[in-house]
Design a protein around this nucleic acid. Structure first.
Lengths: 285, 285
DNA sequence: GCTAATTTAGAATAAAAATTCCAAAATCAC
DNA sequence: GTGATTTTGGAATTTTTATTCTAAATTAGC
């Protein structure tokens, strides 16, 4: 009936405020775990060894996994300083999702403020580039990459197709292949000469295109596919039109800053691909 | 009241059965995306570029992110062969726990699997790129950057000069300037036509070159300087030959992987420069 | 071994989320 | 243009999930 005197909760006050990162959460967990009641300790142990489940499970599922009652889970969450399970799960979810949401909202804010000094803008592109690179490691499928290297190492001639914002990527590929003596043709679109007939059945095409997809790239690639050439696509999402023609897809998601992107991830992927192909081909000489 | 006769669903049967892995899901998505109605396609694009959100979001959240109604999300899920969103999310959630290991451990793993696997090489380039970007913020002098923007915003026409490994940088600058309606000329070296006479005293030149410096770039730039044009140099070290001709120098140090580099830093610097110049010029209209 | 305080289990309730439904709008075929 | 068909938006409904509550069990202090 009578509450504990208010000042007694002072000591708990710090303990009661919710952790703001999962690191802080686990730190607190480690510090308080052994003065927890039996079932709560049991649950603490469970999520300590299954931290990845918190973001994607319900209370009931976690409770079952730890062999405790759902209400024990609730008590645990409150003990850790959260208002309930939902708040705790929110932390785990935001911490997980690769910092996409955080980054996106941060960018949006900066855009509103219009921090337009060149250095601030540069900082944005640097940040976007770093995040894009980090992401690249998760979006590129190692198997697809390996397959792409196989196909390109086997090809007689490699054709690079990509215009506008994709052109820096293809032109860098051209430079790399030239330096490694790999027979490769850069389709630059110069002089509007129709180059599709130089693509032979035993050739391979590296097509680079991002939304909005350049018509010419899709055209050339589709025709090359019809001839029988293999296609390796560097593109942004699986719904890209290149998916239809059975291309080997390497997915890159770049963060935009305003209407532009830094291309860091695309170029890193391209150069890694080129060097892999180059060393493979030269070893087989 | 009367159900469609069972055999009518035969054709749909294959289409209707739910994908069992996320790979299968995205494969199907790529194959069917363009024959989807507008809103469903819109949502398809959204989750194609934000696949990681599916496991940890509600229907309402995803719907808002894609700017569609929750019911559209439900229709999408059913179209893809799931009974509803819950079933689809279940798939993504079970797939999720494998992706939990963070960037650092993932990188370490990739390196382990043989120094020569394409993925390992990609990891190297990603790492190099991230380091280069980090460095960029310290090597680029904000004052020099500001000065470069001033000069370029004032110029009548901007000329971009840079060949071989620098060409991706200049070609991306050309793309950006074109998109922002800034009068700019890309000196591509095509057809060996001597373009130096198109550079006028009120013009500015962006010269991009890294060791070993391409003769042609130094030539063209020196001549432009003699005519009276301003020079902005994107280069690697202060001892670059461009230092002699009183160019505004923006220094970039890229980390090499073998004989190649990812160009992340150079491109980030270039695009930040271009966007700064573009917004400045368009504001002054 | 008894009493008081704490902890637990499970049911009851409240909140939130998924799913369905239907009228309105858009698109298509003629 | 007209009618038929598909697609869409939004509200209504159902289901799932989180949260609270209380009596029973356990534990700790004496």
């Amino acid at each position: 009936m009578i509450e504990a005197k208010p000042d007694a909760s002072d000591a708990q006050a710090t303990e009661r405020s919710a952790p703001e990162t999962t690191e802080a959460f686990f730190e607190r967990l480690g510090a308080t775990a052994d003065q927890l009641p039996k079932r709560l300790k049991q649950f603490a142990d469970f999520i300590a060894s299954n931290p990845d489940r918190v973001a994607v499970s319900t209370v009931a599922e976690l409770a079952e996994g730890a062999n405790v009652q759902p209400s024990a889970v609730m008590r645990f969450c409150q003990e850790m300083g959260f208002s309930g399970f939902s708040q705790m799960q929110k932390l785990f979810r935001s911490d997980y999702s690769q910092k996409w949401p955080d980054y996106a909202t941060r960018l949006a804010k900066l855009r509103e403020q219009g921090a337009e000094s060149p250095s601030a803008l540069l900082a944005e592109f640097v940040e976007a580039g770093r995040s894009s690179l980090e992401n690249l490691m998760t979006t590129v499928d190692p198997k697809a990459l390996q397959e792409a290297v196989d196909v390109l190492a086997r090809a007689e001639t490699i054709h690079m197709v990509g215009f506008r914002r994709a052109f820096p990527v293809t032109s860098y590929l051209a430079y790399a292949f030239e330096k490694m003596d790999v027979p490769a043709v850069l389709h630059s679109g110069i002089a509007n000469i129709n180059m599709e007939h130089v693509i032979r059945p035993n050739d391979a095409v590296i097509a680079v295109t991002f939304a909005p997809y350049t018509e010419l790239t899709l055209d050339l690639t589709t025709k090359a596919r019809a001839i029988g050439a293999d296609i390796v696509a560097i593109t942004d999402v699986v719904t890209s039109p290149l998916a239809r023609i059975k291309a080997i897809q390497l997915l890159v998601s770049e963060f935009d800053v305003g209407d532009f992107r830094a291309l860091s991830a695309s170029l890193s992927l391209a150069i890694a691909l080129a060097v892999s192909v180059g060393t493979r081909r030269n070893r087989n000489l």
